[in-house]
Structures are given as C-alpha cells and as structure tokens.
C-alpha cells in the first residue's frame, strides 16, 4: 500500500528497490503497481521532495537542466541573496532620499537669526543677544528680496534676505 503524499508539497514518487516502475510512474495519476513487485522495506520513503521545485527566471539557461539537490540548494541560496540584496538596495535608496531631504531642510531659511560683524555673519539662536538680523526670505537674487530687507546674505546657491532684528 502506497501512502498518500504530503499535501501541498512538491514531491516525486520514489520506487522501492526491486520495483521495475516505468519512467513517469506516479500512483497519484492512477498508475497501478505490479502485484509481482516485492514489498517495500519497512519505513520506506515513497515520496521525496522534488528538487526542481522553486523559483526561476524564464530566460536563464539553467532552466534547461534538471538541477540536482545540491544545485537546488545553491539556487535557493542565490534567491535568498537576491532578496536580501533587493532589500538592501531599496533601504539604501530610501535612506539616500531621506538624507537629501534632511540636508535640504537644514539649509538656513526664513526665520533663522544671524549675528556677528557686518562682513562675517553666522547663524545664532533667535533668543541670543547676538541675533542682529532675522531672515525674511530665501531668493535667487538680491533684487527679489522684500523692500523692507536692506541686507542680504550670499549663500552661494541662494540669497538670504535679512532685516534688523
């Protein structure tokens, strides 16, 4: 009596010794056992995992070969590495994007306070006594600053419009 295969698993029929089962013999498909075949040894594993089961790319030449169990293990390892690599790439892209946004948000803008000499200004807390100027806008050129702003700071890539605090 052949036991039913485990449900949901990809398995292949493993004929016991002495069984002249033809290629493709599979009891699940209604194929009948020759009554002359000897009894299977005690505890014989009639169903073995199908090593070819798993994921593969349609275009890979490896699809033309039936992988051995060792090859199947290496394919599974490779697939896991691909998944880990994909996660690393996605996380890396996300971190880079977040870092870009964070760095842009750290650039001085309207509301920041500035102090120091008229030639060498530096950003200071607005509550500080050194806060001589407050930024009222960030523009591309000094001409675009509000008329109330009589001082500006050239940041290199932008102009910070300042008013006395």
């Amino acid at each position: 009596m052949i036991p039913a295969p485990p449900e949901g698993a990809s398995v292949l029929f493993n004929p016991p010794p002495g069984w002249a089962a033809p290629a493709g013999f599979d009891p699940r498909r209604g194929h009948l056992v020759d009554p002359a075949w000897p009894s299977a040894p005690e505890g014989w594993a009639f169903w073995l995992p199908d090593a070819s089961a798993g994921r593969e790319h349609a275009a890979l030449p490896s699809t033309t070969l039936r992988p051995t169990q060792a090859e199947a293990r290496s394919v599974r390892l490779r697939n896991r590495l691909i998944v880990v690599g994909a996660v690393v790439v996605v996380v890396g892209i996300g971190l880079a994007a977040w870092a870009g946004l964070a760095s842009s948000s750290n650039q001085p803008g309207a509301g920041s306070c500035w102090g120091g000499s008229s030639e060498w200004l530096h950003e200071v807390p607005c509550s500080s006594a050194e806060a001589d100027y407050v930024a009222v806008g960030r523009t591309a050129s000094p001409d675009e600053c509000p008329y109330t702003s009589d001082t500006y700071l050239d940041l290199g890539d932008a102009i910070l419009c300042l008013e006395p605090n």
């Binding site: 990809s10 493709g24 599979d26 199908d50 070819s52 994921r55 593969e56």
Partner: peptide, 11 residues
C-alpha cells in the same frame, strides 16, 4: 518581468 515558479516536474 514574468517570473516562473516550478511547482513540480515529471515525465
């Protein structure tokens, strides 16, 4: 991309 998964094999 279409990815294929081998459910089983045989003859």
């Amino acid at each position: 991309r279409a990815i294929r998964k081998v459910l089983g094999s045989g003859r």
